[in-house]
Nucleic acid binder design. Structure first.
Lengths: 187, 187
DNA sequence: TTTCTTTTTTGATCTACGTCAAATAAAGGC
DNA sequence: GCCTTTATTTGACGTAGATCAAAAAAGAAA
């Protein structure tokens, strides 16, 4: 939780009192590896801040699991589309390692925004940062070769390649397992 | 401007007084077709709300112009990455038709957020909606065939196909002009 | 209309990456 | 350790869409 407060403080200045309010809204949870946190079709009700561990969002395409994103330490995770628009999720959420996180429900978050406008500013900035990042990431993606996509992932989420299996990396990159395997073998 | 106020009111309720404050911050501009509103490398300082007309963001890849997005009526436009993080833009911004818009600078927007917390909530919701949309759009994109990408664009920005030339559509879709032309010819 | 320029279409190849199938290798369970 | 399951690698072949080139069509200028 300390790291979360640090991040908030980095974006906006908050008082000790505000800090206490914010802390009181989050709850610490321990999540076992492979725990399913959300299923497709459900409405995402929880936002997680990862202290330690790894979570991914995924969906099925032609009966095969496709990872849409990996979330490691110091990131907020949920099925963003579902959480933000409170609509059924098109993806699953699952822990890929034993994970320690701090969580808040959608309705409590709205309450917190009302009680603490400074935190609403943080919410805006967080959404804006995510938007700016996703925009530049997805735009740059279009003309990349399989190899370049792989290198970009490694630069964006260091070590991810060592933490999850090849098939999941390949599905995230939108290339076949075989192509990724061949890619890795030569240099 | 009326439509902008309507949209704000749809997301959050605002008082007549707040409405006046918001109105006072925006300025109406007429933009001639082909006007360059931002160049790569510059910092995006203006946010536009399009009342009438069409604007696109684009960049160069292998010396060829690639459209990253088309923005039509009732949308906010800027180079989002650059505007939100106040960093140099990796893309250009240009009018594709004579356009009527309402504009606000970055610093005035920050001022407005301070003067009117209700509008800061609107800013958060707008960023969240954009994020949710972009997330679902880009995730769905990966496994689409050229034809499916074309159909998705038509569903997302109706009529866009009639308003801009084929080469720009193709570059947006990430396919070659020739492929798009062949696609259109059969059915 | 005629001429010049830009855009779109059509045709003939080429290629990165996919798919299918089978061989290894690594990881768990007992 | 040995066996079963799961993950990775390797090989042969197929394909959507790229690229290059040139013809046809549509717009602009005058």
């Amino acid at each position: 939780m300390d790291r979360l407060i640090e991040l908030v403080n980095l974006a906006i200045k908050i008082s000790a009192e505000e800090e206490q309010i914010i802390r009181s809204y989050f709850e610490k949870v321990e999540i076992k590896n492979k725990t399913e946190l959300l299923r497709q079709g459900q409405k995402s009700n929880q936002l997680y801040f990862i202290e330690k561990g790894l979570i991914h969002t995924y969906y099925y395409h032609d009966d095969k699991e496709v990872t849409s994103w990996f979330y490691a330490e110091e990131n907020f995770v949920t099925s963003w589309y579902s959480f933000l628009s409170q609509a059924p999720s098109f993806e699953y959420l699952r822990a890929l390692e034993d994970t320690t996180a701090h969580t808040i429900t959608y309705s409590k978050l709205q309450q917190l925004y009302k009680e603490c406008p400074a935190f609403e500013r943080f919410g805006r900035i967080l959404a804006e940062q995510n938007l700016a990042f996703l925009e530049s990431y997805s735009k740059g993606y279009m003309f990349l070769s399989a190899k370049e996509k792989y290198d970009l992932l490694n630069a964006t989420i260091p070590d991810i390649t060592l933490r999850v299996k090849l098939g999941q990396i390949a599905s995230f990159l939108g290339i076949s397992q075989e192509t990724l395997s061949r890619l890795r073998s030569k240099k």
